[in-house]
Design a protein around this nucleic acid. Structure first.
Length: 120
DNA sequence: CATATGACGACAA
DNA sequence: ATTGTCGCCATAT
């Protein structure tokens, strides 16, 4: 059977896959939706261990302040910046305007996610 | 068991 | 806007 960590990562990756093209989400936002409140660093960890970059839109995950997590000028930064631009996300000085591009999942999207902390 | 480490986040100067 | 500190929490050593 899969380890607990594998399941957790899988859930995080699945959540990231739900971010629509042209939108972005913060690490903390992904963590919360995936069912791990305050698990922003776990999202970062899951991304580091991403087995297949092709199947997951990792580049749509940025910091809560709208900054790309990599240092400006690094190859990683350029890759991410380019991918986002291709989707129409405007990046100015390495930052995205969260007020415009932040993913806002509607209730339906949240409901079919297992483990989301809604109150009955 | 004790520290160190992170593709983080919130907040105070 | 920048920088530093502290909180967070699974992994790594």
């Amino acid at each position: 059977m899969k380890s607990a960590i594998a399941k957790r990562n899988h859930r995080i990756w699945a959540t990231i896959c739900d971010i629509p093209a042209g939108s972005v989400a913060s690490y903390g936002q992904i963590a919360e939706i995936a069912g791990f409140p305050r698990g922003a660093r776990q999202v970062a960890y899951a991304l580091r261990k991403l087995p297949d970059r092709q199947s997951v839109p990792w580049y749509r995950v940025i910091t809560s302040s709208g900054r790309i997590a990599f240092d400006i000028g690094t190859p990683a930064f350029e890759r991410q910046s380019k991918r986002l631009s291709q989707e129409g996300v405007v990046i100015l000085n390495g930052r995205v305007d969260m007020a415009i591009y932040r993913w806002q999942p509607d209730l339906d999207e949240l409901l079919w996610k297992p483990g989301v902390a809604w109150d009955h």
